[in-house]
Design a protein around this nucleic acid. Structure first.
Lengths: 170, 170
DNA sequence: AATAATATGTCAGTGTTGTTGACATTCCAA
DNA sequence: TTGGAATGTCAACAACACTGACATATTATT
């Protein structure tokens, strides 16, 4: 195949992209996401938890004292779905549920020591793979990686992302 | 925050990475994957299909005449799980199931015209977002994006990916 | 020819995670 | 005081993954 046909180029100021290149990105996302979740999944399976528990632990750790509503819109699930997960985490002593002082309707969520411990184990496993991938790829690639991912997000999800990551440079 | 502390650097030949940067990548993957599936999901919902149907259609389109076993290892699910999806797609006239000529135990899968049509609609929706993200991010970023994703894959998944994408340059 | 292995399909049961819809409670605010 | 917001909970359901067991061709091996 001729080089020019299969390489990213700027044509009329726009990036020229073949369907093949786009398809490659789509498949990269599919296969990479499987790797992305594989390590935490193994730990979760031992404790008979699922990905939903991981996600809840992650975002509670990330924003200690967050409310249920905030967590709901971050995760993008229904409250019934989240509630099932939260209930088991609270029963198992991994998550604390504190009635708000200002607004007593709200519940502020935080991790217990045991919760932090599991979240750390899950995060470490996931970060190890991410670190290894980053190092294989190099600093420039990491910058591109985040840039494309950010451009792929829905605007409302992007807002949650920006709020969490605080606009830190990559 | 001081610049040097929060920027990717090479230290002793290794990329220096803070937990914060790794966490950012993890969250970027989470939020971006939601965007990645959002558009096809809307089309699938109308036809009362799910993501599993999309994945099957995608990889059959990608490797016409592929066998059930090959599709199984690409998708990484059990044959019972795939069979449920394949059966509905065959019944609905989207997928063809042809007995092998060499080995009559095998079934060779391919798309019908209707199958190609739906796969195109799903792919177009997904590619549109990918194209838009690529163009926002630029050619260099796209290269980095794929590089990091490839480094994140499990080796056995990477093999499937390489086989499909055929080592084309990004 | 008999036997083992392979490729596929199917049935039954189970678990996680998502959905709707309905309803109760508590509390803030107009 | 009334309306709405935040939360929790119950029930039913669907998608999609899993395991285990079993059936049926077909091919490979001995």
């Amino acid at each position: 195949m001729a080089q020019g046909q299969n390489r990213s180029e700027h044509t009329h100021g726009l990036l020229f992209l073949t369907d093949e290149q786009l398809r490659k990105g789509i498949e990269a996302m599919f296969f990479a996401y499987r790797g992305f979740t594989a390590d935490p999944d193994r730990i979760l399976a031992e404790k008979s938890y699922g990905r939903a528990h991981h996600r809840a632990l992650h975002f509670i750790q990330r924003s200690p004292g967050t409310t249920v509503n905030n967590l709901l819109s971050t995760l993008g699930v229904t409250k019934q779905s989240l509630n099932r997960v939260l209930r088991t985490l609270i029963e198992d002593g991994l998550v604390l549920n504190k009635v708000g002082t200002n607004d007593k309707r709200q519940r502020h969520l935080s991790l217990t020591d045991a919760g932090r411990e599991l979240e750390q184990a899950l995060s470490n496993a996931q970060r190890d793979r991410m670190r290894s991938a980053y190092r294989q790829a190099g600093a420039e690639a990491v910058y591109g990686f985040c840039t494309v991912l950010e451009a792929m997000m829905d605007p409302d999800l992007k807002q949650h992302y920006d709020q969490l990551t605080g606009g830190d440079s990559v």
